[in-house]
Simulated scan of single mutants.
Amino acid sequence: MKIIAFGASSSFSSINKALATYTANLVEGAEVEVLDLNDFPVPMFSEDTEKEVGRPAGAQAFFDKIESADAYVISFAEHNGTYTAYYKNLFDWASRINQQMFAHKPVVYLSTSPGPGGAKSVLAQAVGSAAFFHADLKASLSVPSFYDVFDMEKGEVTDSAIAEQLAKAAAALHA
């Protein structure tokens, strides 16, 4: 099983990327490819820009990576209660290639933040729209107070209850 994992953020030190990477690697025997959204540059989406430039190479490359996977682990960063502008823009471009971009493949949606909210607002939006993009949502989980439950140097969860919930989410990709 090939899993694409990424944090829906352009931050070079993304805690959501760390969480998605950790969770995807819990799937035994999986080949995990971790994406950095900064590797997929695209102009700001608009129908006018689309008419002018066509399909940007960054959008096609991102879509090709999505299409190559058997499953996904995506962790959503939250800016002002919603998706990061960088992710939303890239996703808008990629969904113009094929709106059904997840092709009924299994997906785990996560979110985290440094604070106690755990980016629950953006996670709720992602969960609410998953079917629209033909994502077979197997599990979703918000992880609050990231730095209290995750050791960035070791790349591991330090809270046993959170670790157990993430393991169950990862196992759901096989279901």
Rank of each mutant, 00 (worst) to 15 (best):
A5W: 03
A94P: 03
A57W: 04
F133N: 09
T49P: 04
Y147I: 05
T21A: 13
K51T: 10
A57G: 05
S140W: 05
S9G: 02
Y87H: 15
L141W: 03
F102I: 01
D148Q: 15
V143E: 08
R55A: 08
V122W: 00
I4Y: 05
D70Y: 09
V42T: 06
V107C: 03
V108W: 04
L37V: 10
T49V: 15
E33K: 15
A169S: 14
R96A: 13
S111T: 05
N80H: 13
A163Y: 00
G155Y: 08
A94F: 00
L173S: 09
F45S: 15
R55I: 13
S46T: 00
G58H: 10
A135D: 12
G155R: 05
L26G: 12
T82Q: 07
S129K: 13
E28P: 04
R55T: 14
F132Y: 11
D151F: 09
A20W: 10
E164Y: 00
A8I: 11
A5P: 00
P144I: 06
F62G: 07
V34N: 12
A24I: 12
V157I: 08
N98P: 02
L90Q: 06
A126G: 01
A172C: 10
D39T: 04
F102H: 05
S95R: 10
Q165G: 00
E28S: 15
S46Q: 01
H104I: 03
A163T: 09
A167M: 07
E67T: 14
F45Y: 15
E153Y: 05
A85Y: 10
A130M: 05
A71R: 13
N25G: 04
T49L: 14
A119H: 03
Q165V: 06
V27Y: 05
T82P: 02
V149E: 07
S95P: 07
L141K: 07
A126I: 08
W93I: 01
P56Y: 06
I74A: 13
G118E: 10
F150I: 11
D151K: 11
N25R: 15
F133Q: 07
S95V: 08
S13Q: 15
Y22A: 11
Y87A: 14
F132N: 03
I4P: 02
K138H: 04
S121L: 01
I74S: 12
A167Y: 06
N89R: 12
K168P: 00
V42W: 08
D70A: 13
K51D: 01
P116K: 15
Y147M: 14
V32G: 13
A119W: 03
K168R: 07
S13D: 15
L19I: 14
P116I: 14
M152R: 11
E31V: 04
A85F: 08
S111G: 09
P144L: 07
S145A: 15
Y147N: 13
S129T: 15
D36H: 12
S68E: 09
E33D: 14
M44P: 02
A170V: 04
T158A: 11
K105F: 11
A24Q: 10
A119P: 01
K51F: 08
S142R: 07
P41Y: 06
A85T: 08
A85K: 06
V27S: 01
Y22T: 02
